[in-house]
Design a protein around this nucleic acid. Structure first.
Lengths: 128, 128
DNA sequence: TATTGTTATACTCTATAACTATA
DNA sequence: TATAGTTATAGAGTATAACAATA
């Protein structure tokens, strides 16, 4: 439960309050790994195609991504992040890092050590 | 990053037919810390009162919690988990933590102690 | 015939604003 | 007048089922 709550708190540190977590997750994927088709995004986020379609619709209407029909397979649609989308992702990352830095600075050395050791265990555990 | 990864790993092990995360979070709180008023639950989960009211409605209709008017302050409503709710929490936890139990059992006592201490810090930090 | 994306429909979670009952 | 809870309303994320376009 502590993991879920901290994860939620970290996600709340975003550049735009109006941008939801699912939308940001898609934007971060496109920013870091290039254009994806709708099906690829749905598989990556473990949601259905209609669900991802709706999320992409919101991102497209807001100008964060663009849809382009695939030239080789015209059933597919390539979704690509815009310059405005890249700027938004960068701003969110900076804000999140700032919040984390303040929190860490307020902890005792022992607490920081505990979190550091725990993070290592959590990474190892999550990889199983 | 460790928090995000562990959170995602835990969710991926979640039973398909189990309840939603917000509902489970409320039920787990009531199961572990006794009855709460609506406002207390809303503050704890960092959502608005109307949002929590709807979640509690779903839990109440399903028979997992009960509403009881407070005797001292009749504006308040005490929300309490039912026996069926306790049973459901137990089932959900067992299913979600099936793999985690094995992982934790493989850790050293010192590692388990580190995770326990880290969980407390994470809860405090997430509440800011 | 199979795959990819979309639309239709329904449910939950979320919020703000307005309302009721009580302090 | 202030507070606790509820209702009204709206937007987003989720799903399944059905459909269109393309391979």
């Amino acid at each position: 439960m502590a993991t879920f709550r901290l994860s939620r708190r970290l996600r709340s540190e975003r550049a735009l309050d109006s941008m939801s977590d699912p939308q940001f997750a898609v934007l971060a994927t496109l920013n870091g790994h290039g254009p994806h088709t709708l099906g690829e995004l749905a598989d990556r986020e473990r949601v259905t195609a209609p669900s991802m379609n709706r999320t992409v619709n919101c991102l497209e209407e807001a100008g964060w991504v663009t849809r382009t029909p695939d030239e080789d397979d015209r059933r597919k649609v390539n979704i690509e992040i815009t310059d405005a989308g890249r700027e938004l992702v960068g701003e969110t990352v900076r804000r999140r890092d700032l919040w984390l830095a303040k929190v860490v600075a307020s902890l005792t050395p022992a607490q920081r050590r505990t979190l550091g050791e725990a993070a290592e265990i959590m990474r190892e555990v999550a990889a199983r």
